[in-house]
Amino acid sequence: MNINRRKFFGSVTSLSLGAAVGRSLLAADLRGSIADVQQRMVKIFGAGGLAGLHAYGTGFLISPNGHVATILSHVLDSDVVNVVLHDGRRIPGRVVGTDVDLDLAVLKIEAEGLPSFDLFKAVDVSPGTRVLAFSNMFKVASGNEPVTVQRGVVAAKARLSARRGRFAAPYRDEAYLLDAVTNNPGAGGGVLTTLDGRLVGVLGRELKNPQTQTWINYAVPATKLAATADAIVKGEFRPKDKFAADEPEGTGVTPVDLGLVLVPDVVARTPAYVDDVVVGSPAAKAGLAAEDLIVFVNSDLVASISAVKDALQQSRPGDDVTLTVRRGDDLVSVTLRVPPRGTR
């Protein structure tokens, strides 16, 4: 009887030690995955700091040659956007391409040999999958400190229907809905990964469910961004709303044609603030208002009134023009139809 008891307790002890070793190995693997992802994360610092606008965001490297993916944000509306790498290096970046529909922006910094994600190796996951969210929410890092890591679960995968203020979110396709409080100030452009570090999605902006008025924590599947981001990196991307090459280029569309009266253009880089909106115009019907600041025309970043005018020259009657404006602490996208000739 004593011998059997000793054998029983010996078996229990062996099982306990085995489980402890297993947990230790899993923890080590998780730490390794987190450290690997952290090397691919960047902190972004640019416009903001006034009227409650945060001047920081998150991004991640998508090429060894310094291409960074993030979300469209007011933070990018700056003459200088600083990108801080995991080792603390601070390098100026410039926007090289955007896609309003995907809420995607790609920046370029002058650096080589950087650890990066391959968007074409991103994975799709199912509800119930345990995930990690990496972001510089609340500006927890400004130098070589690691960004925040949160553990969560994919609660669902569904078409995103959300708003910021009165306006619908620019991204309207399938998204991962998360059981974790991930979408905070500065978190947009962070990444969602599996526990072993495989890229799953990109954390979005702060949005609310229009029915319940509750905040939504979500990520855009990285697989939906791969082709567009790759085209931007290669310099081959053309916005979806550009007309065919055999059509006449431009028709002299101006802000006034859309019903927008901008502030006087008195210096070389006068910001494109709306001074007034013509009653009954496309701009008025879209909900644009005085003091809105135009930051994107279609997928082009516009830093001045002259840049807005140049971008509008590429449109013609009947085209849809998407304007993204900064309003208070919101980034709002609206679509206007260029009116026919003779009605402008």
Results as ranks from 00 to 15, higher is better:
residue 273 Y to K: 14
residue 169 A to G: 09
residue 20 A to V: 02
residue 178 L to M: 10
residue 181 V to N: 09
residue 284 A to T: 05
residue 338 V to K: 13
residue 251 T to F: 15
residue 267 V to E: 13
residue 244 A to G: 11
residue 286 A to L: 10
residue 154 V to E: 09
residue 167 F to L: 06
residue 286 A to Q: 07
residue 242 K to E: 13
residue 126 S to R: 12
residue 318 G to V: 14
residue 127 P to T: 06
residue 160 L to K: 03
residue 6 R to W: 11
residue 141 A to E: 04
residue 87 D to H: 05
residue 51 A to F: 05
residue 273 Y to P: 06
residue 47 A to I: 04
residue 40 R to F: 00
residue 133 A to Q: 07
residue 339 P to N: 12
residue 328 G to L: 03
residue 58 T to R: 05
residue 115 P to A: 07
residue 70 T to K: 01
residue 114 L to I: 01
residue 171 Y to T: 09
residue 253 V to M: 13
residue 103 D to W: 04
residue 119 L to N: 02
residue 36 D to Q: 15
residue 158 A to S: 07
residue 97 G to F: 05
residue 295 V to C: 10
residue 137 M to G: 00
residue 306 S to D: 14
residue 281 S to T: 02
residue 105 A to W: 03
residue 320 D to N: 15
residue 160 L to H: 00
residue 12 V to C: 15
residue 275 D to C: 11
residue 210 P to N: 11
residue 189 G to A: 05
residue 39 Q to G: 03
residue 130 R to Y: 12
residue 187 A to M: 00
residue 80 V to W: 01
residue 114 L to N: 05
residue 239 P to C: 14
residue 324 T to F: 09
residue 180 A to E: 15
residue 107 L to F: 10
residue 337 R to Q: 12
residue 32 G to T: 12
residue 4 N to M: 12
residue 175 A to N: 02
residue 240 K to H: 13
residue 108 K to I: 07
residue 320 D to Q: 15
residue 127 P to I: 12
residue 332 V to G: 01
residue 299 S to M: 11
residue 303 A to H: 12
residue 209 N to H: 13
residue 299 S to A: 15
residue 170 P to R: 01
residue 78 S to Q: 08
residue 285 K to M: 12
residue 203 L to F: 05
residue 17 L to A: 09
residue 152 G to M: 13
residue 214 T to C: 07
residue 179 D to S: 13
residue 82 N to P: 00
residue 217 N to P: 02
residue 144 N to Q: 03
residue 254 T to K: 14
residue 203 L to W: 04
residue 260 L to I: 11
residue 257 D to H: 15
residue 298 N to W: 12
residue 230 D to P: 07
residue 302 V to R: 08
residue 333 S to L: 09
residue 206 E to V: 03
residue 168 A to L: 09
residue 71 I to E: 01
residue 49 G to L: 03
residue 271 P to Y: 07
residue 214 T to K: 14
residue 219 A to S: 12
residue 71 I to G: 02
residue 336 L to F: 11
residue 182 T to H: 08
residue 336 L to K: 05
residue 341 R to G: 11
residue 182 T to R: 04
residue 323 L to N: 01
residue 130 R to V: 13
residue 155 A to W: 10
residue 330 D to Q: 11
residue 191 V to I: 13
residue 217 N to Y: 08
residue 321 V to H: 06
residue 291 E to M: 06
residue 327 R to D: 01
residue 87 D to Y: 04
residue 146 P to W: 04
residue 61 L to Q: 00
residue 103 D to I: 07
residue 278 V to C: 00
residue 24 S to N: 08
residue 204 G to H: 04
residue 324 T to P: 03
residue 91 I to R: 00
residue 213 Q to D: 14
residue 76 L to W: 01
residue 237 F to C: 08
residue 141 A to D: 03
residue 338 V to R: 08
residue 307 A to W: 11
residue 128 G to V: 09
residue 48 G to C: 03
residue 106 V to W: 09
residue 142 S to Y: 12
residue 342 G to R: 03
residue 13 T to W: 08
residue 21 V to W: 00
residue 125 V to T: 10
residue 81 V to R: 04
residue 246 D to F: 07
residue 196 D to Q: 11
residue 80 V to T: 08
residue 300 D to P: 08
residue 192 L to T: 02
residue 202 V to T: 15
residue 301 L to Y: 13
residue 315 S to T: 14
residue 285 K to I: 06
residue 191 V to F: 06
residue 229 A to P: 12
residue 215 W to N: 05
residue 323 L to K: 09
